[in-house]
Every structure is written in structure tokens, then in C-alpha cells.
Simulated scan of single mutants.
Amino acid sequence: MDSKKLLIIIRYIIITLLLFSIVTYRENNVTINTVMVILLLIVNNQIRFFILNKNTLLIFFSIIAECLLAFMAYKSYGGALIFYFLIPTLDSAFMLKNNLSYIGLTIISLLTVYSSYSHVALNISELLSSLSAIIIIYLLVFYIKEENNKKIKAQELYDKLRISEEKLIKANSDLEEYASSIEELTLLRERNRISREIHDSVGHALSTMIIQLGAIEKVALKDGRIASEMASNLGGFAKGSLQEVRGAVRALKPREFKENQGMLPIEELIKNFQKFTGVEVRLNYAKEKWTLNSEQSFVIYRVIQEFLSNSLKHGKASRVNIFINFTTENIILTMQDNGLGADNIEKGMGLKSIWERVHEIGGEVSYNSKSGEGFLLRVVLF
């Protein structure tokens, strides 16, 4: 049963017992005044319970008014003392808070004692039993109210925890989806990077060896000794390239880059390229030279490597100029060959690889070419 309905039933039972005790006490001498006072008591506590139940201060004054009416009614009409003050006791415990509740109980207790002493027939036994019953009922009701409040707070806390748990489960689900998408994206990037590594390292080495083999084939018809030396140099280059491929498979970075920092790998790259291709490469720096970090060195290394390979393979160049300018804000890499050039440049695998590498670290790429005027490539790293 609902607690409010139970309280209503208890109130009506108490009112019924009060009326019965008055009628029994006065026998057949119930007057219109008696009925009016009792009606005022009933109307007051009904208004308090059903209308004023949200306003604590008005409830308090209503309880005091009912206690005064109960005092006058008991003094004039008699009846069972306990039933006059029982409903105010219940309301004081249930409907008032803290200090007001204690004040209400004190007033009820004092009026109970005063009502007994002001009555024509003082009954100490009835006074003590009524007062004890009022205090016990108050404490019992107050305890029930506090336990109910604790239960309500526990339920509210449980609801908050349940909502928090649902949010946490959702956040965990979202995090798992995000982690899965990041894993897929990382896998795609890694595959793309491996593709570039294979193209840059293996492709460059094979292009150089093909050119050298063609040269050896021609020289061998005229001079076997020179062809033998060229074949020996090519063998050494092939061994070095194999080591580079193995290093790329292990760490996807060139061996020279791990062993040296800064510009040394780039200088070694240019030196080997000139030695095996015969193409003249001029490398110049600005006076103020940065200490390149690993990421910058790696990108510049691969860009120069790709440019040299394309200049020889596609441009048939015999000379390449490379200039690296270190400013206060950026690094500018400018490369130009004297190759065939072209009016319309199609972005193949090589240019795409350069563009991707530079843009991954926030750089910019631009190029220009005209037929018969070679190819110009400009890279800016911030």
C-alpha cells in the first residue's frame, strides 16, 4: 500500500477514536459547540495534509493552531487526551524538518501536560501514559521518516550510478570504435609508407643497375678490362643496395640514416649517384645551416633520391643543381636539372611519393618544367 494512503487511513482512524472518546465521555450532552470545535480540528488537519504539504512554515503554524484547539476542546469536552495530540505529533515528525520538528514536539508535550493539569479531573496516570505515547510515537515516526529519506537518497544515488555506468559503457563503446578506426587508418598509412619505401629504395637501385648494365654491355664490346671494373663497381653497389633493402624491411628506414645524422646520408647519396651514373651533381648550402632532425633528414634524403632518379631516367639529364637554404622559419630545397623537360607533367609514382612525404610533415611542394629547359622542383619544410 502507498505510504500516503496509509497515513490518510491512520488519520481517519485517530479522528474516529477521538470523536468516540468525546461522545463516550459526555454521553448524550454533545452540543453544537462541540461539533464546531471538532470540525475545526478536522478541517485544519485536512487542509494541512492535502493543501499546505509543500510549505513548511504554514504547516508549523497549522500544527500549533490545532494544538491550541485540542487544548480548548479537551478542557471543555473531555475525551481521551492522547487522541487530541496524536495527529499533530505525526505531522510534526513527518511534515516538519529539523528544528521546527523538535519545536513542534516540545509544544505538543507542554500542551499535553498543561491540558491534564487544567482539567477538572486530574489523572496523573493518563498524563504519563499520554505523554509517553506521544514521545514514543514521535520518535518512531521520526525514525521511519529518516530511514525512508535514506532509502530515497540511496535510490537517487543508484540511479545516478546507473546513468553514469550507461554513459561509461557508451563512452567505452565509442572508444573501441575509434581505436578500431585508428588501427585501420594506421594500417593503411603503414602500407602506403611501405609502398613508398619499396619504390624509393629498390626502384632507385634497380634503375641505376639497369643503366649501368646497359653501359657495361656497350663497353664490353670494346674494352673488357673497363667493363670488368664497371661490373665490379656495380657488384659493390648491388651489395650496398641489398643491405639497404634489408634495413628497410627491418625498420623501413635507410641504413645510412640510422648510422649518421643530418646531411651526411644526403652527401653519400649524391656521391654514389655521380660515381655510378656519371651525372654531375652540385650540392650547395646556405651559410647558416640547421641541425636537421631525423624526420627532416629522412624526407630530404628521399626527395633528393627520387629527383636524381627521375632526372636520369626520364629527363636524360647530365647535370643537377641542388641548393638547400636554411632560413629562420623554414628549410627551402631547390633542385633543377638540364634534362629534356616537358610542357605537361603527369604526376607519376615518383612525384606522388615526394608530395606525400613532404605534406606528412606539413611542408609544401611546387615544380615547373618546359620542353628543352629541364625540370625544377622546390620543397619548403617548416
Rank of each mutant, 00 (worst) to 15 (best):
D159W: 10
S195P: 15
D159S: 13
I332Q: 03
I324W: 01
L128Q: 03
V37R: 00
L96P: 04
P265G: 00
E259W: 08
A65M: 04
I345E: 01
E183W: 07
N29L: 08
Q305C: 14
T112M: 02
L175Y: 11
L40H: 01
F61A: 04
E176H: 13
F71E: 05
R282P: 14
E183C: 07
G315N: 06
M349I: 10
G236A: 03
E360A: 08
L269E: 00
L292R: 02
E244S: 13
V141W: 03
F323C: 10
N172M: 05
S371I: 13
I64R: 00
A65F: 03
E288R: 08
I38R: 02
N260S: 12
N233W: 05
T56P: 12
I103S: 03
M72C: 07
K271I: 04
Q243W: 05
I137N: 04
R196L: 12
V245G: 08
V141Q: 08
L52M: 11
E244Q: 15
V279Q: 10
M335W: 00
G372P: 09
I14C: 07
A248M: 10
I82R: 06
S294L: 07
K145H: 09
K151I: 05
G79W: 00
G235Q: 06
L381F: 06
N368T: 04
I32H: 06
A317Q: 00
I10C: 13
T106G: 08
L111N: 03
S195D: 14
G78C: 13
N44D: 01
V380K: 04
F257E: 10
K271W: 07
V23A: 07
L58P: 11
H314D: 04
L18V: 07
I108Y: 02
N272D: 09
P254D: 02
A286I: 12
G374F: 01
L185K: 15
S129V: 11
I10D: 13
Y158S: 14
G374C: 03
G350Q: 03
G362W: 02
A121Y: 15
I9C: 14
E373H: 13
G262H: 04
N330H: 07
I51A: 02
L188V: 15
N45T: 13
I135H: 09
K75D: 11
D159E: 11
D91R: 05
F83N: 01
F61C: 04
P265C: 00
S181N: 15
L340P: 11
I144Y: 09
L188H: 13
A238P: 04
I63N: 01
L6V: 05
E268M: 13
G350N: 05
I15M: 09
Y285N: 09
L351N: 00
L86I: 01
D174Q: 03
S125A: 10
G214R: 04
V141S: 08
